[in-house]
């Protein structure tokens, strides 16, 4: 699955991110509003789905080398967050779906990762 697929599957609006990043392959994702939980499990997740909107979401994704953040329920980051994400070459997306649905749609469409430890 590519970032472009994520955009399509989630009916997502692109908040920022160069189009060249849309072809990046993503193999796993993580859905959480608790950033320490995101940091606790390194599994090469490339996509972070969250309902939390503050700059620490961007920094957490940066520490984890994630390429794409999806804000659920149409939440929108502010200008400062967008500026940081742009500096990190990250794609920010907003989907109208709720967390549960957004994660389910990506899973159903093949974004399943390894999940050996699940």
């Amino acid at each position: 699955m590519t970032v472009r697929d994520v955009i399509r599957i989630l009916d997502a609006k692109v908040i920022c991110g160069d189009e060249s990043l849309f072809d990046v392959e993503v193999s796993d994702a993580c859905g959480s509003d608790m950033m320490s939980d995101v940091l606790a499990f390194v599994k090469n997740q490339a996509v972070l789905l969250t309902g939390l909107v503050n700059v620490q979401v961007i920094r957490t994704a940066d520490m984890m080398d994630m390429v794409c953040i999806v804000f659920v329920r149409g939440k929108m980051p502010d200008e400062d967050m967008i500026a940081v994400a742009k500096r990190k070459d990250m794609v920010l997306l907003a989907t109208p779906h709720r967390m549960y649905t957004a994660c389910g749609l990506l899973w159903q469409n093949g974004l399943k990762g390894e999940h050996k430890d699940a």
Binding site: D33, M34, M35, S36, D37, L39, A40, T50, L52, N54, Q56, V57, T60
Partner: peptide, 15 residues
């Protein structure tokens, strides 16, 4: 409310 304070900070640092 900011996504931290779940008691995972020091355990993650050790990990």
């Amino acid at each position: 409310n900011l996504g931290f304070g779940a008691g995972m900070g020091l355990p993650n640092m050790k990990k």
